[in-house]
Amino acid sequence: MQTINIHEAKTHLSRIVERAARGESFVIAKAGKPMVKVVPLDAPAPSPPKRLGFLAGQVQVPDDFDTMGSAEIEQLFGITP
């Protein structure tokens, strides 16, 4: 997504609006600090953020997780213990 300085946005507003209407999104910044986001009206709504830890307490990892299936894996690669 392109970032445009606020002075440039004021100077070329009609061009920016046309580009946004064609589907482009922009961030307008003041002194390098992002201030607003310009998106077309028909742009799809952003999907909700992914939640980390939503299965907390519902999944248990076995104590031998790191070694599960090691014998079979070693056999597949021709490694003998």
Rank of each mutant, 00 (worst) to 15 (best):
R22Y: 03
T3H: 09
G78I: 02
K30T: 13
S25H: 02
Q75C: 06
P44W: 03
V38C: 10
S14H: 06
D66R: 07
K10P: 00
M68K: 14
A71F: 09
E72P: 00
V36K: 12
V27L: 02
K33D: 03
E18H: 12
I73P: 00
V39D: 05
E8C: 13
V61E: 05
P44Y: 04
A9I: 00
A20P: 05
A20E: 07
I4S: 04
L13P: 00
I73S: 08
P40T: 00
D66C: 03
T67C: 04
L13V: 12
M35F: 01
P62W: 00
T11I: 12
P46M: 05
Q58T: 01
R22S: 11
A45L: 01
D42M: 06
N5L: 10
D63Y: 08
L52A: 15
S25G: 02
A9R: 06
L13K: 15
E18W: 10
G78M: 04
Q2D: 02
R51E: 14
L41A: 15
S70P: 03
F54T: 07
A21L: 08
A56I: 06
I28H: 07
G69E: 08
L41K: 14
F54C: 07
F65S: 06
E18F: 05
R15V: 01
T11V: 09
A20W: 03
A29F: 02
K37D: 03
N5Y: 11
D42R: 05
P40V: 01
M1D: 05
P49F: 01
P44K: 10
V36I: 09
P40Q: 06
K50P: 00
T11C: 11
P62K: 05
T80Y: 06
E74W: 10
D63T: 07
V59T: 05
